[in-house]
Design a protein around this nucleic acid. Sequence first.
DNA 1: TGACACGCTGTAAACGATTACATATATTAT
DNA 2: ATAATATATGTAATCGTTTACAGCGTGTCA
Lengths: 339, 339
Amino acid sequence: MKTIKDIARLSGFSTGTVSRVINNHPDVNPETRRKIEEIIAETGFQPNANAKFLKQTISSTITVIVKGIQNSFFETILEEMQKAFKENGEEVTVVFLDEAENEVTAAKQICSTRKPRGLIFLGGNTKEFAKNFASITVPSVLVTVDASQLGFENLSSFTTDDISGAKEAVGYLIRSGHRKIGIVGGSLEETNGQLSTFRLQGAQEILSRHQIPFSFEENYAPCRFSLEDGYMAGRELLRKNPDITGIFALSDLIAIGVVRAARDEGKRVPEDLSVIGYDGIEYVRYSVPRIATVRQDAAQLAKRSVEDLLMRVSYTRAAVHEKIPYTVIAGESVIHPKN
Amino acid sequence: MKTIKDIARLSGFSTGTVSRVINNHPDVNPETRRKIEEIIAETGFQPNANAKFLKQTISSTITVIVKGIQNSFFETILEEMQKAFKENGEEVTVVFLDEAENEVTAAKQICSTRKPRGLIFLGGNTKEFAKNFASITVPSVLVTVDASQLGFENLSSFTTDDISGAKEAVGYLIRSGHRKIGIVGGSLEETNGQLSTFRLQGAQEILSRHQIPFSFEENYAPCRFSLEDGYMAGRELLRKNPDITGIFALSDLIAIGVVRAARDEGKRVPEDLSVIGYDGIEYVRYSVPRIATVRQDAAQLAKRSVEDLLMRVSYTRAAVHEKIPYTVIAGESVIHPKN
DNA sequence: TGACACGCTGTAAACGATTACATATATTAT
DNA sequence: ATAATATATGTAATCGTTTACAGCGTGTCA
């Protein structure tokens, strides 16, 4: 591997000057710059980033930490973020964690390695943040999880109002004439974090407001946010309560599983069973039938997160906690029940 | 930020001893180790990874470079890889690149920064590799793209035999009685790399072997590997050639789009149109109808890649180029054409 | 002419770890 | 008792950059 010293020797200048060329410092003679750049190009020299970051207290990059790739919705947000960063000419690194890893510990590790100017967490567990985030000092943003209760002044959050969104989803079923409603997804023991809690809470609130009977025994099947789990839970629920005419799935992935489950239980969607999902992933627009959903605005979630972070990275501003509007998307999967 | 010197001072030992504790060197007095570890825990000290990698010629981690997250199939492979690495107690870093970025350039950058022991490329462009890979010296594996032609002795590859797989996919349609067959996906100008080339080639070969007419004008619609593009191309093909009874989609994502396109063109799948995809992503098992596909063995692809890499990282072995068996999965989306 | 500024370049001290080598002490063999 | 060996620890050079500081040639101005 070539080092800056080799370039210095080859070009006849000192390491200091070479370094100044690499980092585009202004006070270098244009002719000198040209010569050195030529040598750098010839040799294919790449400065050792470790030496660089060791010396520099901070790097120019921003790191996005994503927890759980299996979530299609996160993918979309991530793509939008990449776009937004690119528009702002920012360098980004993405780190993927699986469910078992601790996002805050990983973040600490990253801070010591990459010295990012800012951090974005896509998904996360509120308790973990409450416990460990204090030691992270760079401006950060938490996306899809509300951090306003946590009160860290360097942690913004951008979320969808899931309670309200869930209300509208179930409200959609109710307005379509459904009275026997089931819910699939999440868990009663809050391990899934805010998402399932809030969506479940919103759903229950609107049901009780309309005095529609709901019990966890009869109208609910818990499951993780995946196709397979949605399918299994869907079958379970439809078996134990075949009268249900409308199901609110806590995520689109679950909804897709439920639609298939209905089919395998001899029910047709939407003729025998209406289904509405949550998130607005791309699949639901292409499935047959198109599945109704509450579309979270991935683009805005991403855009606002990036904007806020870049702002706070450059200027001292207070962290913000913002709700991004959602849209209820009608779909072929919800109609008025037959009887 | 605390440094190793702080720990040395606080514990009364030297930096050398502290370093040995951190790196689990055997020749440290257990009592000393305990004391130092206590201080480390108290202070929350994290060693500066840049300093570490600057000094060390090589790190313990392995880096996976993924190009294009929008590809569901890659996600599955990635998950399987994470599993396989975990089983072997290996530390992994995943880096995501978007389509526009150059994987080999990124890899060079990573090598200079993280000094990985090995590299896995998930997806990639053969030409790029041919041109730039020479400067990468760590053991590497290229997954889903055949590198046997490239002849780098530190680059293995694990792939599915796409030519043969595509033959079987189309063969399945033919055996089911289809004679008017369309193909959706890829492009004629090889920009999509090997995948579309091989799959297209296999499809054409079996069609001509059965003397089934095929022309790019009448039986083909090119498109990128996404839902939306599959949908658009599907509609285009069905409009320009409504007689087609069976479609081979070059990927499952495209197949899903085609199924929806058929519906919107007034055709039902499978009654009016049979569709078979490629890859075997999870979704096709839950869609209505279940979509027939050629299932690539993501788990094996991942497992063998990881095994081979770990082997070559520790011992000097020649790179290998291995084909992983695929499975044709029957699905509700393919039946005998009506007339 | 001397003083000063300006533009460019060189020098060398950091940054925070690792590790080869030296050293000190305890243990064992002869 | 002496030498040899093993064990535990300290010392200091080193990795490849950045950057504060110094130096030098040239031009400008009083």
